[in-house]
Write a protein that binds this DNA or RNA. Structure first.
Lengths: 349, 349
DNA sequence: TTGTATGCGTTATCAC
DNA sequence: GTGATAACGCATACAA
């Protein structure tokens, strides 16, 4: 495939005996240009199949009209939806998206972010990997680096709290609180928590919601019912086995990390013949598609993912508008919604 | 957010009292440059936080190092996986991806493709929308346009057959054939087909596999058991209701279009109290994650989606290598795999 | 209204 | 080995 010579504004200009600048003006609707020659220019541009060279244009204008997105995994429902939302907004504005996945690895994340900086993207949108420990020194230097280059940085969902950037998050604590309250309403007495890596703020917040709900309802926090680091399906299953082996096992499990974790719980329950939701209530997090398909269907929390993507993208353009009067740090919190399904409905209403 | 002035090779050059050309050579490891000054250049580049301006570089080199991908929906498992596969390969090569979704609309697809051409991408990778009728005249002009611009075009999965491009597809006919044969083995006698829009080759091929399997096993093709245009969950459910209302309803349904369609079948069966797989066998297509989570789990066909993405990307780089001796048209066919689950296992072995 | 000149940041081709 | 110079294609300030 030979990269053919594309037609440029020079080609059009020389054919019409005008200067490239006139062609440029005509094509961009900027500055003065005779109406009839303008028509002519547009017409021949069409004929010669002219396409503006965005590279040159952006180089000249000093912007790339490109936004970089870094997520742990593209093919995870939540992130795919957020990306779809971002795409919908940016596409209309003529911006392009560069998508990177960190695969939950810190190194790959750093590499991806650096690539984006290299690409001179106008904005980096990121949800950090599970390995990105925001507490350790310098562990977020790659993000600081983005800011140092004068590139807008927007974090969503999994954010590094201490970095002063634009953020779009869920009210995780509130959502967890509601989930636990609902389970208590359903008569569950010993509610276990599968928690995620506590270096990530979202998982700390979800745990807080859990603790808060127990406290508010006068229920004790039982240490052995809190399982650390159970954020995948496998780890969720493992944690469940541990919980069910206790002298006093729980009668409900809140898989606060993800629906995948909840799925692990469900599978262990099914395998060991435990009735859900009668003997064991289960609640997940994220409203992945599959949660309404399992048997029984899984109660979970919807994060309005597509909407979250749109919000992020809109935030960028909005901040771009009033670039002078801008706050460096700004957080938009979206209230997630508890989706009650069979896995926690012990009482029929 | 003020777009700060980035450091350029001029900055480095002037600081070190050398010329930009030397800096460029040092940074690119091209041509001669004194070892010690080279070290010095590299060091100060690091210090000044220099990042090459890819826009300028690519403009100069006449390539964008960018690949455009157009899929019907980003947040559909199959496509998300293909994209993940593509990303994995292209990322290593230093290429960027621009992702567009057509939302299954012809107009949006045309618009997306044109955007990519505008962006001067080096390659367009596409799986066409359901509205893109390859038979109608000029309906694929936007794809021809890509080729006319000297841009590599690779189609995957849903391809426009008559366009001479690189293609990566599944052997749909073979997969369907195997699925039907399996169902016949399980003793199903009246197997219905939910077919997809026949303007798309993949759906024609899947139908062919169905017809071929029936023929080979000496079974008649019963017209009323073939339902047109049942390619979404809703349409799948609708078709199922129609089928179950027949005087002689089918004892199995092959949702050849997608697992979503199969899900529609399953839901109708559950709602009307029909036993799956005893009274009704169900087979889907694509091996979406949820198919192993439903109750009963759904027999389906795995398309090796991530692998497909990698294949597509590798194909591009491979063809790029030997750009001279290249065949314009080339098709790679991946053999999909039948995943047998509960929804068709009537006979316990 | 149109043309001229210049620069965006790099890289490649020369000549030195 | 190194440096000057042109060119990639476009957009704009300024002059005409």
């Amino acid at each position: 495939m030979k990269p053919k010579k594309r037609t440029t504004i020079y080609d059009i200009a020389s054919k019409l005996n005008v200067t490239p600048s006139s062609v440029s003006r005509a094509l961009n609707n900027t500055g003065y240009v005779n109406e009839t020659t303008k028509k002519l220019i547009l017409k021949t541009a069409e004929e010669l199949n002219y396409k503006r060279n965005i590279l040159a244009s952006n180089l000249r204008k000093g912007e790339s009209k490109t936004i970089g997105v870094v997520v742990p995994r593209i093919n995870q429902n939540f992130f795919a939806n957020v990306i779809a939302g971002i795409e919908e907004v940016t596409y209309k504005k003529g911006y392009n998206l560069i998508i990177c996945q960190s695969n939950e690895e810190y190194d790959k994340e750093v590499q991806s972010v650096n690539t984006l900086v290299n690409q001179h993207v106008d904005c980096v949108i990121i949800s950090i990997s599970v390995e990105t420990n925001s507490d350790e020194t310098n562990n977020c230097r790659h993000l600081q680096n983005v800011l140092d280059h004068g590139i807008q940085l927007i974090q969503f969902d999994r954010v590094a709290d201490e970095l002063e950037t634009l953020k779009v998050i869920n009210d995780n604590e509130q959502a967890s609180y509601e989930a636990i309250s609902h389970m208590i309403d359903q008569g569950y007495k010993r509610i276990a928590l599968l928690e995620g890596p506590q270096n990530l703020a979202i998982f700390r917040q979800r745990k807080n919601g859990y603790l808060l709900a127990l406290e508010k309802h006068g229920m004790p926090v039982i240490d052995e019912l809190v399982i650390e680091n159970a954020w995948t399906k496998e780890l969720g299953a493992e944690g469940t086995r541990k919980l069910l082996g206790l002298a006093e096992p729980p009668d409900a499990i809140f898989a606060s990390t993800s629906d995948f974790s909840a799925l692990g719980v469900l599978e262990v329950a099914m395998a060991t013949g435990i009735q859900v939701p009668q003997q064991l209530g289960i609640c997940g997090y994220s409203n992945e598609d599959f949660t309404e398909l399992t048997y029984p269907s899984i109660t979970t929390i919807d994060q309005y993912s597509v909407n979250m993507g749109k919000t992020v993208a809109n935030l960028y353009f909005q901040e771009r508008e009033n670039a002078d009067t801008v706050a460096v740090s700004k957080t938009i919190s979206i209230k997630p919604k508890l989706i009650i399904r069979s896995s926690t409905q012990r009482l029929k209403e």
